[in-house]
């Protein structure tokens, strides 16, 4: 399956969170792409801001040029899964950027930046 080979290790803290997510999803979905499992949670959380919100679609329109594999793969920009930055630091990074990453505070709404940060922090530390 596409982008589904989760051969890497999960961090202990994350494992618990992932396990809950895992259980809340059908068995069929457990076979799927980890980014989709994570995104489902985030999308649900932000539906009140926008109907049919998709964090992966947002990521693909704004971030993917430099961060490959929806954040799972290092490229021009680093791999975003498992980074030590706190959610607040991730929000800060997205708002202000760092050469050559642009700052997005004028391009994205606050809740969109929050959603991206939640998504990044929820990505399991798996190798693609």
């Amino acid at each position: 399956m596409y982008w589904s080979r989760s051969r890497g290790k999960f961090s202990i803290g994350f494992f618990t969170a992932m396990f809950i997510t895992w259980l809340s999803l059908s068995i069929a979905r457990a076979e799927e792409d980890v980014t989709e499992i994570v995104a489902a949670e985030i999308n649900a959380k932000y539906q009140s801001h926008k109907e049919n919100f998709s964090v992966k679609r947002l990521f693909a329109s704004r971030c993917s040029w430099c961060h490959q594999g929806y954040g799972l793969k290092q490229a021009d920009g680093p791999r975003l899964a498992g980074i030590p930055k706190t959610k607040e630091q991730v929000v800060e990074q997205i708002m202000y950027g760092k050469t050559p990453m642009p700052g997005f505070r004028k391009q994205l709404k606050e809740w969109q930046i929050e959603a991206l940060a939640d998504y990044i922090k929820a990505l399991p530390d798996v190798e693609l």
């Binding site: 329109s61 704004r62 799972l72 793969k73 490229a75 642009p102």
Partner: peptide, 10 residues
């Protein structure tokens, strides 16, 4: 603004 429409892995 940043404007593309895909995510990929080389």
């Amino acid at each position: 603004q940043a404007y593309f429409g895909a995510s990929w892995t080389s």
